[in-house]
Design a binder for these strands. Structure first.
Length: 418
DNA sequence: CCCGACACAAAGAT
DNA sequence: CATCTTTGTGTCGG
């Protein structure tokens, strides 16, 4: 019930940072001649799957990662109608609802997108789909705070104070569809990149990087939810997606390419890792006990059994927070929406999406008797939402990163914005 | 080199 | 503690 989110214990550079938000237009209330402008903020946490290798955020294409997303509006008046005016356009669209989703793009070219896939716990035996757009309500604005300490007391009942959306939600998904309330946070689980970054191990060619993109859309369809305009998005730091098994990289290490983290491919569109680790450690930053700077690759002395052995630095203390965000959302979302571009401008790109339903089908997987999502009573099995409940924090394998322990409230995105 | 599929095994969840 | 589930990853074939 609480909307609390994971954790704030995120501290260490155990997860890839996000670049600052990029807005694609002006969001405002329709409250009068001088409409009140609204500033959207996107929050996201990439939990699991990534580790730092040579100062670069890396993951394996074959492994899962999850992304917790939320957004907020400042100021936020729950009942006031909102409108969105894309940059470079005078056209104003009424905002019926907000939807979030995730995608990925090549660092060099934001225009080159990379597909993301989502599995069910049954993996190959179950259906595979792309992350869907999920309807969401804004969280209380973090206002002027750092995105980091945004946690709201959890555990204490006081946290629902913001009664922004009435808690009536319990409901069935379908119900919420109509105008009910939506979760303020959503976790995309079991996500993986459809393809690896190019030139992964080559020292010669420039390493390619991807950026995970957390997007916020406004649903502007007059009647049905099938028309969206992207309002803003927030990219992650650039990352490398390895295509082969970990074993192949263990020994590999290029190490000195020094293409370096920061400059890496240089292509990074924004900042690579400047925020914390990345470029830092070489300079001798006093990092936390992260020993991984040297490379997680040294997983120790194992000799034949590469299997995990987490060699956590051990300094990962305090992890007591596991507020997992239990989002129950179960039905409702998934609108077959298609997308079409509206118009573009040199600087502001207005993107409109409409969905011609048809490309994805709801798949229903039969949860064996237990799965995470069963918790909710979704009337329709077909509208699922892969369980977002578990925000498991198992210890990573060799990556040994305490996914969310320790924390570092500060410097997160500042080295470079785009 | 990368990808998809199959298969096994370890970590967690029950 | 036994068992089932979930997920990382080795491996083979394309």
């Amino acid at each position: 019930m609480d909307v609390t989110y994971p954790p704030r214990s995120p501290g260490q550079p155990t997860i890839p940072p996000l670049e600052p938000i990029t807005t694609l237009g002006l969001l405002h209330y329709a409250d009068g001649a001088p409409n009140t402008p609204v500033r959207p903020e996107i929050n996201g946490t990439i939990d699991k799957g990534f580790f730092l290798s040579d100062g670069e955020w890396t993951c394996y294409r074959r492994n899962y990662f999850s992304c917790v997303c939320s957004f907020s509006l400042t100021p936020y008046y729950q009942n006031m109608p909102l409108q969105f005016t894309p940059s470079s356009s005078q056209q104003t669209y009424p905002v019926q609802a907000f939807v979030m989703s995730i995608s990925a793009v090549v660092s060099d070219n934001d225009s080159q997108s990379i597909e993301l896939v989502q599995h069910t716990p049954k993996r190959d035996k179950g259906p595979i789909m792309k992350p869907e757009k999920v309807r969401m309500a804004p969280k209380m604005s973090p206002a002027s705070h750092h995105p980091l300490n945004v946690y709201h007391g959890q555990g204490d009942g006081g946290l629902t104070p913001r009664g922004i959306y009435d808690p009536t939600y319990g409901a069935t998904a379908a119900a919420s569809q109509g105008g009910g309330t939506f979760q303020t946070e959503h976790t995309f689980e079991r996500i993986q990149f459809k393809q690896a970054t190019a030139n992964n191990g080559k020292r010669r060619a420039a390493q390619q990087y991807y950026h995970l993109v957390i997007e916020l859309y406004a649903e502007v369809g007059p009647h049905g939810p099938d028309q969206y305009v992207r309002v803003a998005y927030r990219r992650s730091a650039k990352m490398i997606v390895r295509g082969r098994s970990p074993g192949h990289y263990q020994t590999e290490r290029r190490g000195s390419t020094s293409s370096g983290p920061g400059g890496g491919g240089g292509t990074l569109g924004g900042f690579g890792n400047g925020p914390m680790i990345g470029a830092d450690f070489p300079s001798g930053g006093p990092m936390m006990g992260g020993g991984f700077a040297g490379g997680y690759e040294n997983r120790g002395p194992y000799s034949g059994r590469p299997h995990h052995q987490h060699n956590l630095p051990a300094e990962a203390m305090i992890p007591p927070e596991d507020s997992k965000a239990i989002d129950n959302t179960k039905g409702y979302q998934y609108y077959p929406a298609s997308v079409y571009e509206g118009q573009q401008d040199s600087r502001g790109v207005i993107e409109m999406f409409t969905d011609p339903r048809g490309d994805q089908e709801s798949n229903s997987y039969e949860s064996k008797g237990k799965s995470e999502y069963d918790g909710a009573s979704s009337p329709l099995p077909s509208l699922f939402h892969p369980g977002q409940v578990m925000s498991n924090r198992r210890c990573g394998r060799f990556e040994g990163k305490p996914r969310s322990e320790g924390f570092y409230p500060h410097l997160i995105s500042q080295s470079g914005m785009n």
